[in-house]
Amino acid sequence: MAQVILFLQQLLNGLSLGSIYALIALGYTMVYGVLRFINFAHGDVYMLGAYAGFAITNVIYRFVPLDQYNAISRHTFVPIFVCTAIVMLGAMIFCAILGMSIERIAYRPLRDRPRLTVLITAIGVSLFLQNMTQFFVGAQPQAFKQLIPVRAIEGLGDLTVLSSQAAIIISTIVLMVFLRLIVMKTKIGLAMRALSVNPTACSLMGVNNGLVISFTFALGSALAAAAGILVAMDSPSITPLMGNLPGIKAFVAAVLGGIGNIPGAVVGGLVIGVLETMVEGYGFPQLRDAIAFGVLIIILLYKPTGLLGRVEREKV
């Protein structure tokens, strides 16, 4: 029985970690879908999302010191929810603008260049964002102030579910549903899907490709910002380099699910998250960070299209 509880506990921790990867992976996969390139700087957008949230939270604390609440109850729910929503939305808007600007300034002028040129630029953008953030806020970690009180939810027996974990999983589900609606039910979502199939035909049908690409960057960056804040709720120490590892792991998640495939990114993110917590929980904590790379290498060698991807042939 204890074994089962332990397994469920690991699974749950893995799902909450995996939700974060999934949110970041969506940005990689959507940008890859429309532009066929790896936005290396995406992990840093996630980092800046956390810092934006950090700044907004500090402002909110001047009016509402949220750490006065030490449990979620009927009375405290509304202020906590409203404040968190403000922080989240603020950071998402900030990152959406940031993502669009990056695309405008650094990637758009390279639209018809080899993909490698764009990748190198993206590496440059990533390093630039990290190091400029480091310049402005310093390299030392900052403590993200409490948004929701982190407590174990009662009434679940031996299973420990933290309120932050619940918040991560619930927020992720809500965001996924939103994304699904946007991609499947709106006109711009249709344009995104069309663009990923054939950009030329898409623009010939009167779609403004530049606008759709900007929108895709905005959407992906906003999701990354949400991930940044959700992570900070769970482990409130943020640094300018915090985007590196999650960024790469989320990329692996996107590849695992089949890059360019939106449900695939979610599945991939959850799988990576669960794998990591399992490996850590069952005795190999030092290998945790190597897992994603191992998965990436195996996937690319044996099933480069990912779990849900489709085959693309080179024309000769």
Binding site: A106, P109, L110, R113, T117, V118, I120, T121, I123, G124, V125, S126, L127, F128, N131
Partner: peptide, 10 residues
């Protein structure tokens, strides 16, 4: 380096 990369590529 990051500025060099971006400017060179552009």
């Amino acid at each position: 380096y990051s500025l060099l990369l971006i400017i060179m590529m552009l």
